[in-house]
Design a protein around this nucleic acid. Structure first.
Lengths: 143, 143
DNA sequence: TATTGTTATACTCTATAACTATA
DNA sequence: TATAGTTATAGAGTATAACAATA
């Protein structure tokens, strides 16, 4: 086996690619990508955030956020309303349709992840989740 | 904690990003990126491969490979010589300087990976490597 | 005719800078 | 003056199509 395969970065990247490709396929019918799905989750969990706040929490550039929100609004997955307390900013809320999409996508994501992890025992899958979480927690990427 | 954080895909992506950013920083002085480093490893392990063969093994587009090889040749990390048995293709070999760079980068990669994994016990780090490998093996990404 | 490497081109994704409206 | 959102633009990174040299 090639030396490069002994690299955690390389292995993690390849596994990430498996998850990404599998999930992107499932998301196609909904016309959104994984990052836009993350934006929708965030707005569902914290209604009335502004574009800037969502951008900061997900570490996405605010100009990129404009196009993401444009797209999700056009699909009627969320609504922009002017924040009356600061009319420069928007208050973002998910729509009923958006919530439905969210649930469907969550199910599809679990399904595609089960497929990628199918060679692992339940214990190994749990272990993987715990170890990844542990790496991220110490880096304080807790959003 | 946000729901999205319970996703393997999301966690794997974030961890991959940690490895990538850390290693990219180390590679800067050598003026190559992680994929070009992978190309160099491949040519070191299998001398006299053609550009097309390297491209196929690493799943990189052959037109992208042209610019990678241009770059690595300009840095004198590898040499192109015409394959006498098929003058359409090149025979790629790593230079002495390329080999030195390879060893330096390998050390730096191990160093940056140890940093990312520093919150794990040795057993956990080994477990992570084994589980990632197990996922990839069943998908037959064995190059 | 098919294939290797090359070039020109285009496309995706994202970031930078300048603009507007509000504060 | 500073800030939220917007727009225009540019820069990576990569892929598609057409071409030259060789098989």
């Amino acid at each position: 086996m090639s030396r490069i395969f002994k690299s955690y970065g390389f292995m993690t990247g390849k596994v990430e690619q498996l998850f990404e490709l599998e999930f992107a396929e499932k998301l196609k019918p909904f016309n959104i990508n994984a990052k836009q799905y993350g934006v929708l989750i965030k707005i569902d969990e914290k209604p009335h955030l502004s574009q800037k706040e969502v951008a900061a929490e997900l570490k996405i550039d605010r100009t990129t956020m404009v196009s993401f929100i444009d797209h999700l609004e056009a699909l009627k997955y969320l609504t922009r309303t002017k924040n009356p307390k600061d009319r420069r900013s928007y208050s973002l809320t998910i729509t009923v349709q958006g919530k439905q999409i969210l649930e469907s996508c969550w199910g599809l994501m679990e399904q595609s992840e089960r497929k990628i992890l199918s060679s692992l025992s339940n214990e190994e899958a749990d272990m993987l989740g715990g170890i990844l979480m542990k790496i991220l927690e110490t880096r304080r990427i807790n959003e």
